[in-house]
Design a protein around this nucleic acid. Structure first.
Lengths: 111, 111
DNA sequence: CATCTATTTCCATGAATATCGAAACAGCAG
DNA sequence: CTGCTGTTTCGATATTCATGGAAATAGATG
């Protein structure tokens, strides 16, 4: 995880709509949700949703898997784990001792 | 921590330049760094840097403290702790079991 | 192949963003 | 008050982004 990748993923999550989409997918569990289902819950045109999903996929936070005629969108959990690891490692610098974050959440000594 | 605030902070960190600035400040410790010092290390015009610092301050990730003629920029550590807590709580949904993140890093039951 | 559903791409538009030089400003020092 | 240093605002520009309707596409099914 380098700083460029981290910035791209943070940017992808930095849009309220996309953050909602991503949270929805995470909460949906490993099976994820069909695009149409996400569309129904978030409430937006398919084209707009598609753009957001594309961005989330480009940065590796989401992937799609086809089952018959339906495309399932799934959160890529390890990606979030790595991103949080980056934030803890690179942006806490042993000063975030508040919740013992640095000690537990950083399996990857980044860059 | 609501989803709007989280999105704003993620957006602020989602710019490579700002992420570098923020990381620099975090690593500088609690004293932080003078604006000019950040400018020297990042290498950009003062006006551009000022805009980025402003954004980081608006979302509460950075604050400034004056000492004589020098403005010290400091990372607000609790803000990052809360943001990571949000990501773990809201966007890991007990599925990020990989690194035991959910169990340790979320001191605040969000919102 | 024809057709249906689900999803993406194309295209256009308005808004937001990143950038930076020049000028203004804030606060100390004399 | 004057000058000096450090920092922010102003103004302008090029770029990127978010949005969504219409058309095209992908894949399953008959």
């Amino acid at each position: 995880m380098n700083i460029e990748t981290a910035a791209q993923q943070l940017d992808a999550l930095g849009n309220p709509t996309r953050l909602r989409i991503y949270r929805l997918l995470v909460r949906a569990g490993r099976a994820g949700l069909p695009v149409a289902s996400v569309q129904g819950r978030i409430g937006m045109p398919a084209s707009t949703l598609s753009h957001h999903l594309k961005k989330l996929m480009q940065v590796g936070l989401v992937r799609q898997e086809r089952d018959g005629n339906t495309l399932w969108c799934q959160a890529v959990y390890p990606a979030m784990t790595r991103l949080i690891g980056f934030l803890v490692d690179e942006c806490c610098a042993d000063e975030c001792g508040d919740g013992d974050l640095a000690a537990s959440a950083g399996p990857e000594r980044a860059e």
